[in-house]
Design a protein around this nucleic acid. Structure first.
Length: 434
DNA sequence: TCTGGGGTCCTAGGACCC
DNA sequence: TCTGGGGTCCTAGGACCC
């Protein structure tokens, strides 16, 4: 049943940057305005594209080689997360002028709870939404799509309603009109599995779903879908996660290599590199992992892997690599073609607290930790991965995965610099390539 | 959807305990 | 050794998101 009472018992705003990465590139370099801009050069596939590029048929994850055929004068840029993240911060700040209750949902999206802010801001919810959009567009030099509705799920419906640069306000008494025109698979949280099941049950639009009785939903679906059902009926179910970006529950690194490989040594070094990279990220966030999993992905997209608990929380790869080296062959099958490896670090904590054991191992761990402070400093200076483990050598030296020549030669230069730095800080066990 | 990378949350079912 | 009932914790895997 659709509620049709007061228009905004709760006023939830959703802000979505249009083609965010590509738009940041254009904002950074206005000469790109009006051109076909695509980001994702380092991955070989499109991660974001300007509306001009979209109009000419570029879609997400499309191969760059294909895009070049389609649009010879396309501008392809590597992702620059530092810049995107600065724009992202500015987006949050602008929204925060109107309320402290801002959820930094992702790099290009946020939610804000405007409820109760009409008096302090001396304007209606509609006026706030308009003003926020105007300030975002004007101050950041790109467009945003903004939605205002009763809760997160319907605010998402609103911001998606018109893109790019839309501003859509859905008061409670009009909600059913919007839901009637929204296919069920477009609803946030309803993925391909659930939507095809729903369609089989005769539920084609968001309104069809909203109109179903609670009991019907409860009998057929798990909690998340019952919650979506409530939100589509106008209830406020999903609270905003306000403030500090939540800590990670896990950190993972995976890399696909083309062509796939049967070479044990190569596959192992790919995994080693992923483990190193995951640990770099771990340290960047001052985190420690107490468990991890590693896996290999075969050419036919099957996964096999193992997971482990560590006796101590770690932030450096040694302990993990020791276990992986001992157990790698329990997973690796000779003759199989592998296309990717991956690692997931779990049970993360900030606590550096470690129990000193009786065998003085903590001393060794502290030494490794100090060495890595030097490694991280060197990498900050000379570029990511300037210094890396010997076991990752082949992954660094045989970049079988996509990546153009310029990147590799740049990396080589860094390696030489890294070598000098290594000698200066005296790293005992790291393999560094010249 | 001919498949890149990084995340989160939920559930069912087994293990184990009283 | 069997039966019954109930609770908790953990894990694997599914589904979804950007």
């Amino acid at each position: 049943m659709i509620l049709t009472h007061r228009s905004f018992p709760r006023a939830i705003l959703h802000v979505d940057g249009d083609s965010f990465f590509a738009s940041c590139e254009v904002a950074k370099d206005p000469s790109l305005k009006g051109k076909c801009v695509v980001t994702g050069k380092e991955r070989g596939i499109a991660s974001s594209m300007s509306y001009e590029a979209k109009a000419r048929g570029v879609t997400r994850a499309m191969r760059l080689s294909e895009i070049k055929k389609l649009i010879p004068d396309v501008i392809i840029l590597p992702s620059d997360y530092e810049t995107y993240s600065l724009y992202s911060q500015r987006m949050y700040e602008i929204v925060r002028r109107y309320t402290d209750a801002v959820e930094e949902y992702s790099i290009d999206e946020c939610f804000a709870d405007l409820t109760g802010m009409r008096r302090p801001n001396n304007m209606s919810y509609e006026a706030m939404a308009e003003k926020i959009k105007r300030e975002l567009d004007g101050e950041l030099g790109m467009t945003f799509s903004v939605g205002l509705a009763l809760n997160k799920v319907t605010a998402k419906v609103a911001s998606k309603w018109r893109k790019p640069s839309g501003l859509t306000i859905i008061p409670g008494y009009h909600l059913h009109l919007y839901l009637a025109k929204t296919p069920i698979e477009k609803i946030w949280g309803i993925g391909p599995q659930t939507s095809s099941y729903l369609i089989k049950k005769g539920v084609k639009t968001a309104l069809d779903f909203a109109m179903k009785e609670k009991e019907w939903v409860k009998a057929l679906f798990s909690k998340p879908f019952q919650e979506i059902h409530s939100e589509l009926n106008g209830d406020f179910v999903y609270p905003l996660t306000v403030g500090e970006k939540h800590d990670y529950a896990s950190i993972s690194k995976t890399r696909t290599f083309t062509p796939p490989s049967k070479d044990r040594g190569f596959v192992y070094s790919q995994l080693s590199k992923n483990i190193e990279n995951a640990c770099i990220k771990l340290r960047r966030h001052n985190l420690f992992a107490k468990a991890f999993a590693f896996y290999l992905k075969t050419q036919d997209f099957r996964y096999s892997g193992l997971d482990f608990k560590l006796s101590q929380a770690v932030s450096v790869p040694q302990e993990i690599l020791k276990i992986v080296s001992e157990r790698f062959d329990d997973v690796y099958r000779p003759g199989f073609e592998y296309r990717a490896t991956g690692v997931v670090l779990m049970e993360l904590s900030h606590s550096d607290a470690r129990t000193l054991d009786l065998f003085g191992r903590s001393g060794a761990i502290d030494r490794i930790k100090r060495v890595y402070e030097g490694v991280d400093a060197a990498c900050a200076k000379f570029g990511k991965h300037a210094v890396f483990l010997g076991s990752s050598f082949r992954a660094m030296n045989e970049p079988a995965h996509r990546g153009d020549r310029a990147d590799s030669s740049e990396r080589r230069k860094n390696l030489v610099k890294g070598e000098n730095e290594r000698q200066r800080i005296g790293l005992p066990f790291l393999g560094v390539v010249k």
